[in-house]
Simulated assay, not measured.
Amino acid sequence: MSEFQAGGAPAGATTLHQRILGDLEARIVSGEWPPGHRIPFEVELTERYRCSRMTVNKALTQLAASGLIERRRKAGSFVARPRSEAAVLAIHSIEAEVGALGLPYRFDLVRRQEQPETAADRLRLRLDDASRVIALTCRHFAGEAPFCLEERLVNVDAVPPAADADFAREPPGAWLTRHIPWTVAEHHIQAVAVRGETAAMLGLDGGTACLVVERRTWRGEQTVTAVRFTYPGDRHQLVARFSPS
């Protein structure tokens, strides 16, 4: 039996377009075709279904509009990878984001430096007085793929225990949430074309569009941390939910 001969068409479907749509959708939703799987090319589908290319294109366009597949120029169509979601106004857990995708989570500490703050650190942390700063770089993974890059500054004067914390064993964000309450936070969000070391650590080509979320948190008048998260742009989205005032 051909992989395209069995059921999968929705109940009541009578047109060839609906049959093709139902067959492809069933294989994606069932997991038979996992995220990243290449959909047969249009010419292959026209031969298998003995139909016009316009009919196949219509079905693929509908699957793309529903978010089930991604169409890439010259490369073909692929089963879409699920995007993680983060609430814009929340301090979210990266491990929870990855878990929501049904993928195993891990992280590695790429770099840790403790030093007097630089002019750039002072600007990012909004510091007026001299302070000790820990600079941390971490990579977070969803399965085998890099999920995001974390570049964090911690104000040691605001969080003295951070000087002895083992951030190779516990992600800095999770450690800070457990050890010190914050009272105010702000987010800045922008799209950036990454290059150099950042692109390399995320396994991306130079110039790839990424989503960058920068966050500062305070405890009273004292800045606790400033962090920059860089996400591959096709794997993450931000969500805001609010009510009329």
Rank of each mutant, 00 (worst) to 15 (best):
A59M: 09
T46F: 04
D164H: 12
A100V: 01
S77Q: 01
H179W: 01
R71V: 14
E32G: 00
V184S: 08
V227A: 14
R241N: 02
T198C: 07
G31S: 07
M201Q: 14
A168Q: 03
L60P: 09
R152Y: 03
L24M: 13
V212S: 09
G207M: 05
I69H: 12
L101K: 06
Q190Y: 10
E25Y: 08
D157P: 01
G143L: 03
L176W: 11
G196V: 13
Y49S: 01
G99L: 12
I94R: 11
T198R: 13
H236R: 10
C51P: 01
W182E: 04
L24Y: 09
A100C: 10
A11M: 05
V192C: 03
A191S: 09
H188W: 11
N155V: 00
R72M: 06
D157I: 01
S52M: 00
R27K: 11
A11C: 01
A199Q: 09
R178H: 07
F147Y: 15
R178V: 00
K58H: 14
E97Q: 13
F147W: 04
R216L: 12
W218K: 13
M1F: 06
P40I: 10
A96M: 13
L127E: 09
D205C: 11
T208C: 13
Y105P: 05
A80T: 08
A11P: 05
D205F: 08
Y231R: 00
H37R: 09
Q62L: 13
F167S: 03
R132E: 12
R122H: 12
P172E: 06
L101R: 10
T177P: 01
R83W: 07
P160S: 01
E186S: 08
R178S: 06
G31E: 02
E97P: 03
D23I: 05
A75N: 10
R19V: 14
E47M: 05
L16A: 01
L63Q: 12
V88D: 06
V154K: 10
Q237Y: 13
E114K: 04
E214T: 12
G233N: 03
V156K: 00
C148K: 03
P116S: 15
S52N: 12
L101H: 15
G8H: 13
S93W: 05
Q113A: 15
P34S: 08
A87E: 15
L204S: 05
P181W: 04
L24Q: 00
T208A: 15
S93R: 11
P171T: 01
H179L: 10
G220C: 04
V110N: 13
R38G: 06
T223C: 09
E221V: 07
D23L: 07
S131V: 02
E47Y: 03
F242R: 08
V184N: 05
G7T: 15
T198L: 08
Q115I: 06
A130K: 07
E117N: 10
V110A: 14
I189H: 05
V213C: 02
L68W: 14
E85M: 12
A6K: 00
S131T: 03
R139H: 04
G76E: 05
E114R: 07
I39K: 00
L176H: 02
V194F: 06
